[in-house]
Amino acid sequence: MKNTVKNLVVLTIVTLFTLSFTAIDKNKKEIKTDKSKVVWKGYKVTGSHEGTIAIKSGFLNFEGDKLTGGEFVIDMTSINTTDMQGEYKGKLDGHLKSGDFFDVAAYPTAKLVFVKVKSTGKNTYEVTGDLTIKGKTNPVTFTISVYGSKATASLKIDRTKFGIEYKSTSFFENLKDKAIYDEFDLVTDLEF
């Protein structure tokens, strides 16, 4: 009995001593939304349009200097076309916010949650995440690069997986030059 107690005390001391020198530095780094940027670009048969959308909140998780997770909430009401001006800009912004596209009255935010992060190089990671748009969640995979307190990522998103079918050739025939391609791009520059 005496040896058992002695062994437990020694084991406890060794465990605490070992853990104190091997603790991993876990950090949650909040995104500076006022210094970060998300640019979108959508494509149609006759050209493309682009603009910005605001990050409402977000963070990246690190263990030491290695990215391990993250989560972002996007303010869908902030959709802004930057390649047009005046009346046509207003019409396109309004149409993108309508039920034909993102229905921001019913779904004012979108969300991306990192599910798996795999290092692919010194500062580069392959991320698989759950993206929720219009109440529908689908997996997305993308590459993110982290340098100091900044990160960049590019995502290609198939809008039809989120119920956005307006003028999609996947659902409508004979659209000809009125067709809008299913995939759109998001390019992010993040600061934390």
Score class of each variant (00 low, 15 high):
residue 101 F to C: 06
residue 104 V to F: 06
residue 35 K to G: 04
residue 57 S to Y: 05
residue 118 K to L: 13
residue 54 A to W: 00
residue 70 G to M: 07
residue 109 T to D: 12
residue 91 K to F: 14
residue 44 K to N: 05
residue 15 T to W: 15
residue 55 I to W: 00
residue 71 E to P: 13
residue 106 A to C: 06
residue 82 T to Y: 02
residue 77 T to F: 02
residue 50 E to C: 04
residue 28 K to C: 04
residue 42 G to Q: 03
residue 40 W to M: 03
residue 79 I to T: 03
residue 88 Y to A: 09
residue 71 E to T: 10
residue 40 W to K: 01
residue 57 S to K: 09
residue 80 N to L: 08
residue 109 T to M: 04
residue 64 G to E: 07
residue 55 I to K: 00
residue 107 Y to W: 13
residue 78 S to M: 00
residue 30 E to H: 00
residue 84 M to Y: 07
residue 17 F to K: 10
residue 22 T to R: 13
residue 69 G to A: 08
residue 80 N to P: 07
residue 36 S to V: 03
residue 100 D to S: 11
residue 39 V to N: 02
residue 52 T to F: 00
residue 93 D to Q: 12
residue 59 F to S: 07
residue 112 L to P: 14
residue 114 F to G: 13
residue 105 A to T: 12
residue 58 G to N: 04
residue 56 K to Q: 11
residue 56 K to N: 07
residue 82 T to H: 05
residue 46 T to L: 05
residue 27 N to S: 13
residue 117 V to S: 12
residue 80 N to W: 01
residue 111 K to T: 13
residue 74 I to V: 14
residue 111 K to V: 10
residue 19 L to F: 15
residue 21 F to H: 12
residue 90 G to V: 15
residue 17 F to C: 12
residue 43 Y to L: 05
residue 107 Y to K: 05
residue 40 W to N: 02
residue 110 A to N: 05
residue 39 V to W: 00
residue 37 K to N: 09
residue 42 G to P: 02
residue 52 T to W: 00
residue 71 E to I: 06
residue 72 F to R: 06
residue 21 F to E: 01
residue 82 T to K: 06
residue 43 Y to D: 03
residue 70 G to C: 08
residue 60 L to G: 04
residue 108 P to C: 13
residue 46 T to K: 02
residue 27 N to L: 11
residue 53 I to D: 00
residue 26 K to T: 15
residue 83 D to G: 08
residue 90 G to Q: 13
residue 74 I to R: 01
residue 76 M to Q: 04
residue 69 G to S: 10
residue 69 G to D: 10
residue 76 M to P: 01
residue 70 G to W: 05
residue 18 T to G: 14
residue 23 A to P: 08
residue 28 K to W: 09
residue 34 D to H: 00
residue 40 W to H: 03
residue 31 I to Y: 03
residue 68 T to A: 09
residue 100 D to K: 09
residue 45 V to I: 13
residue 42 G to F: 02
